[in-house]
Amino acid sequence: MNFLSNLISGLSLGSIYALIALGYTMVYGIAKMLNFAHGDIIMVGAFASIVFINNLGLPMILGVLLSIVVCVAVGVLVEKIAYKPLRSAPPLSVLITAIGVSYFLQSLAQLIFGTNQKAFPKFIQVAPVQIGELTIKGESIVTLAVTVAIMIALTLFINKTRMGKAMRAVSEDRQAAELMGISVNRTITITFAIGSALASVAGSFYGLTYSFIGPYTGSMPGIKAFVAAVFGGIGSIPGAMIGGILLGIIENMAKAYISTELSDAIVFGVLIIVLLFKPTGLLGKKINEKV
């Protein structure tokens, strides 16, 4: 029973990682860049929720929804100001810029909110569910249900809609897509908007799980989600989902059965082992260069 409840809280943590990993993997697939500021969007979303709910006294759900709007605006603005001018620059310059944006967002949050951690409102209160001896936290169930719904919607969007097809086309061959009349800039903007919205949702659930938020809150889940994206095969959407969920389960199991202090080391250790055997990740495409 203990194992099952650990598995479920691992699933719920993993689904948060998966949401963040989706942002990494989509931006990498379409804009061919690693957006290391993506983790900090989580923090922006969580702080926005705190402001809307605690300071402005808005209803909880409305506050969470408005924080999505804030994150989308920040994400799109960052892309327009910092990344778009570097569209044809070497990848290393873009990477450094992304790290710069990450520090900028962290410092900005420090200036506005101070360095202390702030309590995150419990915006969802659901009674725990009791099945036999097994108790499942209400928040875990909500987190899991919402993230699964989002992932299904995203998969449908990517595979069925016109915009989704354009995104897949740009990710396969940017230049050919452009020559077929697809606006690459617009596609990249929409990718950043979707990624930031997902990060905002992840931020709210992360706040719900850990209760406290600080200016650096985004960096650790950001890095873990990046690991999850690489683990699943960066660029692959189902890969990010699977990678995120597996990572959450591994982390929780390591905490429960091995050692809380070592759990992060174990998570990254697993990544190293997986990449030794599958260098492109679980669902990553093997690229055979034609000779």
């Binding site: 449908l156 069925k160 809609t161 989704g164 617009r186």
Partner: peptide
């Protein structure tokens, strides 16, 4: 436009 691509898309 983009909006109709979403509303029609599903």
């Amino acid at each position: 436009g983009f909006l109709s691509s979403i509303t029609h898309g599903f």
